[in-house]
Design a protein around this nucleic acid. Sequence first.
DNA 1: AGGATTTGACCGAG
DNA 2: CTCGGTCAAATCCT
Length: 376
Amino acid sequence: MFKSETDKAKRKRPDQTMEETFSLILHGCKLAKDLESNLGNLASQPEILSKSCDDIVKVFAAAKGRLNADQDPASFTQLLRESPSSSQQPQQSTDPSLQEWLKYGVITQAMDMIQQKVLAGKAPFETNEMGGKNLLEGSASARLKGSVVGEIQAMELSDSGRGSSSSSQRPRRRKDDEEKRTMTVPAPQMGNTDLPPEDNFTWRKYGQKEILGSRYPRAYYRCTHQKLYNCPAKKQVQRLDNDFYTFEVTYISQHTCHMSSTAPSIPPPPPLETGTQDQIMTQAMVSQPTPASSSSVPLGRWLSMEFNSLASASCGSGSGGAGGSTASARYGREVDYPAVADLADVMFNSGSSSSNSMEFIFPSVEDKWEAGDKKN
DNA sequence: AGGATTTGACCGAG
DNA sequence: CTCGGTCAAATCCT
């Protein structure tokens, strides 16, 4: 895929070549970004990590080769430095998150994230949940676009938290007893923008509250299986004051529901149903990039699958809509798709799951890649 | 009917 | 006392 691009470029004029080289580099960046987003999931899959790295290296190598052969690197560098409004860098202006990523070196964050996970040996960050039935509902592209792109602007492990469990009356755990991880994820910019970011877990909304100084209310969710499996996982979702299209999601505590072999969130992986298989596959692949034992998909394959089927892939998550609730549970109960469930299972058990799933990554990438920057 | 969401009230931390 | 987080009854949805 990349080689052909490179070959084609060689037959073109320098300016075209430059443009394509630029795109190539950006694509490489995207691949890297995708990888970064899934490092958590891939942490335990060195082969896939290796493969992914190879893919990225190939892209950059191709770009480098073209730069060396066809043009003056200096000009390219200059291109990079030009103002965002420059027509010379459509891709650049197209993907602000990428720029940001490049600028701030999010990879470092990702590495830290993984390190933390490994050190802590705990469950992963949430990934997008699939809303089961809602998967097939309309505004798929919106969902895709709005899904968690995995732009981790901030990710923290702090000791703050609150929580209440069930002891006597309302015994609240001390704030420093809970783990809190905060990240920001883009909201859909088309369709139902109320849809909050999703991950691979099912949540039940148990409260919403206006927060002082915040423009938008904060929604409180807890794991659907809280009662059944005494799963303490919770999350809070709130729009950023200054950015309606961005949610700040705070995950509190780890899921323990998947630990149970009987946990509903991990039904056995029966064969896929027909008809929606593509969607499911895409969704599964995308939302559960974890290279799991049972259904691991190399990043490279995700990419190709993604690019090939994105158009028809409805986004995987569903939470149908119901006003801003992430709890797909309502309309799409638990895990409706075996493949997804299987993947989720794997993910759960792998103890990793970055906040970002491919579903969120590729679609947005694709959108940005093709549609240009409509976000800003 | 069962389960999810809504929403006002309650409770504890600061 | 204020505010954030949670509870739980009412309501909604499938």
